[in-house]
Design a protein around this nucleic acid. Structure first.
Lengths: 243, 243
DNA sequence: TAGATTGTTAATCGATTAACAATC
DNA sequence: TAGATTGTTAATCGATTAACAATC
């Protein structure tokens, strides 16, 4: 474990030295994927892994893995590879898993309920404190153990509970005003499932817009272009036959 | 409308000329977003738009819009801009909205139900034919007007109905075998919400993996790094005060 | 020590932006 | 015709990959 402490020292120094780490966005978006795979390896009881082996498992280049991880300092050790537990811990830290973030879900429709049911939050260190809705019939009840409050109490709740994240599963029309309320109440991040793109440039809030429809369309594009290609090949063949 | 027909002709020619259009993946992933914004403009009754105006609305560069759209041939007209209805129609075609794709949802849990309820599919020309589940209690019922069948009949159903898309909202462990069944039954695309990365390199199926957890983690990263930066600035200030 | 594997620099590739000639 | 705006080329920027010296 000696080398781990040395590495730890190296890491702390780098962060301090380079005022701005300026991690490429491409790298940031890959971090959760590393986190997932390393979590699986850890669960399998693996102790160490080389960038070469991880590259095979994850289907990326070893070069990219080393380049990516080095954005945050030296997590590995020459001749040894990466200590999985240590690396997993470091990436967890980077991703804020250890920060104990709190969240509220606004909108207890089908998607809100699905998000109340999933273990996705807990696994990532995020605690869901409450659901909020306008429906009197469910206000005061619990959904999968999470209390449902009136959306009227959203502002006060977020203020007093110092909520970090607001999950928006409200109808499109309500999205902007709910988002504003969340921001005024001090929420730091908005996970937006409403079918609209929210952006608050100068406000100190981060918005992550989810557009599942866009993903479905991309899939349709791929299917269609594959179909088109096959049809083109087929007509090529029949043309040959005719000649 | 004269120019539109001319443009149409140009488009057809280009596709024919350049055997392989090789559209950059970055462009493909932006197509659904163009489709959304153009749909909104069309709903607003707008007839034409310039790349400059669209760039302001969409918060991208006009250059990128022109470059992107030109991958598929000339959709615009010099001095005029783009005819919104025509452009929307062309992008709809590219995305397969006009293909009448069919889909089944496998797994009628919370997420499966949410996907049964949403209008996302219909808007994009995709018809959901059925839900499939293992739960005897719901087999034979309807969820939001979509019939629920036993997963045992999945293969036969997909074969006989020529299903294009399989939506996977099953537990992680079941994902691979269900996916295999779908592929053998001739499904062309898999929209995978199971928390695992499916890939079938040589099979003629396209997989779109959804990892909502990764998106949540990215949001957490942003919140954390913003927090860190603020704290760093605060300590800078206090340091100055101390001096 | 010898072998393994990282960290890091340099080369390549792809994607974005700027600029402007073509043209409606 | 003059003004507007595209289509397209060239320049820039960022991200990926290759290669290898550093070092465990």
């Amino acid at each position: 474990m000696e080398h781990i402490d040395k590495l730890h020292g190296t890491f702390e120094r780098r962060i301090a030295d380079t005022q701005k780490p300026t991690v490429p966005t491409a790298v940031i978006k890959r971090l959760p994927r590393y986190h997932r795979y390393l979590g699986d390896l850890l669960a399998d009881g693996r102790l160490r892994i080389s960038s070469a082996e991880l590259s095979k498992i994850m289907n990326v280049t070893a070069s990219q893995i080393r380049q990516d991880l080095n954005c945050f300092g030296g997590f590995g050790q020459q001749g040894y590879g990466y200590n999985i537990k240590y690396l997993y811990g470091k990436i967890s830290e980077l991703l804020g898993v250890t920060q104990g973030f709190t969240a509220v879900i606004v909108g207890a429709g089908n998607l809100g309920k699905a998000l109340a049911a999933t273990r996705m939050f807990g696994r990532r260190g995020v605690t869901r404190l409450a659901l909020f809705d306008v429906d009197e019939k469910i206000i005061g009840t619990e959904i999968y153990g999470i209390p449902v409050h009136s959306v009227d109490s959203l502002y006060d709740f977020c203020r007093s509970e110092k909520v970090d994240i607001g999950v928006l599963t409200v109808p499109k029309d309500a999205a902007y005003s709910v988002a504003k309320t969340l921001i005024y109440a001090g929420v730091k991040g908005i996970w937006n499932f409403a079918n609209t793109e929210l952006s608050f440039e100068d406000e100190c809030v981060t918005v992550e817009n989810i557009h599942l429809g866009d993903s479905l369309m991309t899939l349709c594009y791929e299917i269609k272009s594959k179909n088109d290609k096959e049809n083109a090949e087929d007509s090529d063949e029949s043309a040959e036959v005719e000649q």
